[in-house]
Design a protein around this nucleic acid. Structure first.
Length: 525
RNA sequence: GGGCCUGUAGCUUAGUCAGGUAGAGCGCCGGGCUUUUAAUCCGGUGGCCGGGGGUUCGAAUCCCUCCAGGCCCGCCA
């Protein structure tokens, strides 16, 4: 059974018909592909719950109340003054990285493109801005309860995480006079006000019913589980370590009067051979960039096709071909788990694969076969390289019966992403088609005298040929018949001349694309 | 030091939770389509399931142990 369906079944058993799956993100501007695993894991469990007939919601909590930690490389030094301030309350940067008072909030600025990217992979969550939950008083009861039980919470954090908290530690961080929560000391609590003094010597009171401060991360997380009734929130393995925020969150959530979700930990996505994806190391491939290269169902399949506890190597090079092959194979030959003669293992594999296919679809419930657009990823990679004009690609596909009528939107987008990929540094060199300008030494060494004379004869014939695929193809056939070599040897010779290899894509299409003059020059060289 | 995860064919892996004869794809080798859109189809090759011990009629699967690799563990997410 697929992990998402398995989880849905477990959730039904543990928590009943009502489910709330959750994932979140800090809109600091540093998004990486690893975030997609958290989001897609939660979203797929949500879909699996719906498919199982449960009443499920998928919420996406934006940590807009989190402070700016540091001045990121894409920000100007002017952001120094906003460190410690909630991302929802500081201005977005302009193109030069300077704060732009007219550009809306920092949080919204970075969130927008990210949500657009999620839309491309069919993820449409209920977005909850955490600062709004604070400002509407949604956190007030939990904050009050937290402060009342501060000693017990301190005990939980210290005993489970092994950290020692400072004597002046307080489980609520008010904003100071400059809007930053750095350097603010709590001096007292009188419901609903937390009194403070800040590093400028100013003092004031934060109303816990408003967004005038926030809970520290470990408590914030535990509190929101209760506030939103979250039943499932996959967490990265960093949270899952012993004494990590999940371990402290469970008892804190119960202390605050709610039942926490079960612990669910996913492994990380890594760039093969380059260590972990992380914002701080700068080793990132942005989700937006990735989605401009990779078909969305393949991105989903990357997550759906891997068990949660397996780390994923995200490789935008040749591994994309393999992943696409695998996906296409599963789409083309779905195995019926009920079929006769299958072993138990084969049945399990069939059910799991079918689940992965189902969850990989951008549109929930769509037929996986529609996602391919009728052509394989490899084939399209080849066509896109030898046909610079989209309409020529469609014509070629019609000629080979890969396409009837007009291309679907899915297919048009596939080609667009393919062209992006081919034009990027990620495209594998050995898949790149290099058409030679003259017959290489290497190629010459592989050609018999008969093959060489065939090539020059073809060159002469092509000089008088009409320049169309059909005419070129006819010329090849005619010259082949007149020569002393068989059809196979003729084509082998052509590919050696054109590509420096013994085989390749349709020869007439290649010759058509390079043009009459260049083709003749090559063949008679 | 504390903890999590992984180890199955040359490569990527399924199967481990619910023990019942090791499955698949890629690669490789051979062949077909009386000849070419890296196409496609068919056949073949290939594994003491990391090592050892235990439980069992039966273990890749459960238990113990060892080895190897990856990762997490100030704050923050």
């Amino acid at each position: 059974m697929h992990w998402a369906d398995f989880t849905a079944g477990r959730l039904l058993e543990e928590r009943g018909e009502q489910q709330v799956a959750c994932s979140g993100i800090t809109p600091s501007g540093e998004f990486h592909i690893g975030h997609l695993r958290e989001i897609l894991s939660a979203e797929m469990i949500h879909r699996a719950c719906l498919d199982a007939g449960l009443d499920s919601r998928y919420i996406f909590i934006v940590d807009s109340m989190d402070p700016l930690r540091r001045v990121y490389p894409f920000l100007s030094d002017e952001y120094e003054r906003y460190i410690g301030c909630p991302l929802a309350f500081i201005p977005a940067p302009d193109a030069d990285g300077n704060p732009d008072p007219d550009a809306g909030s920092y949080a919204e600025h970075f969130l927008g493109p990210f949500l657009d990217a999620l839309g491309q992979i069919g993820v449409f969550p209920e977005v909850i801005m955490n600062h709004e939950t604070y400002s509407s008083g949604g956190f007030a009861a939990k904050i009050h309860s937290t402060i009342e039980q501060a000693d017990a919470i301190r005990e939980i954090i210290e005993s489970i995480s092994g950290r020692e908290l400072d004597d002046d530690w307080f489980p609520y961080k008010p904003l100071g006079s400059d809007g930053s929560m750095d350097g603010v000391t709590v001096t007292g609590y009188e419901h609903p006000f937390v009194h403070w003094t800040d590093r400028h010597g100013e003092s004031g009171s934060a109303d816990i019913r408003k967004a005038e401060g926030k809970l520290p991360w470990r408590i914030d997380w535990a509190a929101r589980w209760g506030i939103h009734g979250i039943t499932c929130e996959p967490a990265g393995k960093d949270h899952g370590a012993a004494g990590g925020s999940f371990d402290t969150g469970l008892p804190i959530c119960r202390l605050l009067g709610s039942e926490p979700p079960g612990k669910m930990v996913y492994e990380w996505i890594q760039v093969k051979g380059a260590g972990p994806m992380s914002s701080s190391s700068g080793n990132t491939i942005g989700p937006v960039e990735a989605l401009s290269l990779v078909p969305p169902e393949i991105v989903r399949y990357l997550i759906a096709g891997s068990k949660m506890n397996k780390h994923i190597d995200f490789n935008t090079g040749s591994a994309l071909f393999q992943m696409a092959d695998e996906y296409e194979r599963l789409v083309a030959d779905p195995v019926d788990p009920e079929a006769e003669g299958l072993s138990k293992r084969q049945r399990v594999a069939a059910v799991t694969n079918n689940g992965a296919m189902r969850l990989s679809q951008v549109l929930q419930g769509a037929d996986p076969a529609d996602s391919l657009g009728g052509v394989s990823f490899r084939h399209l990679a080849m066509l896109a390289q030898i046909k610079s004009d989209d309409s020529d690609v469609w014509a070629s596909m019609r000629a080979s019966n890969h396409l009837q009528g007009e291309p679907s939107d899915a297919l048009i987008q596939r080609l667009e992403r393919m062209r992006n990929w081919i034009g990027s540094i990620h495209f594998p060199e050995d898949a790149r088609i290099h058409i030679h300008e003259s017959i290489s030494e290497d190629a010459r060494a592989n050609l018999s005298p008969e093959q060489s004379s065939f090539l020059s004869a073809l060159g002469e014939t092509l000089a008088d040929s009409e320049w169309s695929d059909e005419a070129i193809n006819q010329s090849i056939r005619t010259v082949t018949k007149e020569s002393e070599i068989g059809g196979r040897q003729a084509y082998v010779a052509l590919y050696w001349a054109l590509l420096g290899r013994s085989h390749g894509p349709k020869a007439s299409a290649l010759i058509l694309e390079i043009g009459q003059e260049a083709a003749i020059a090559l063949l008679t060289s």
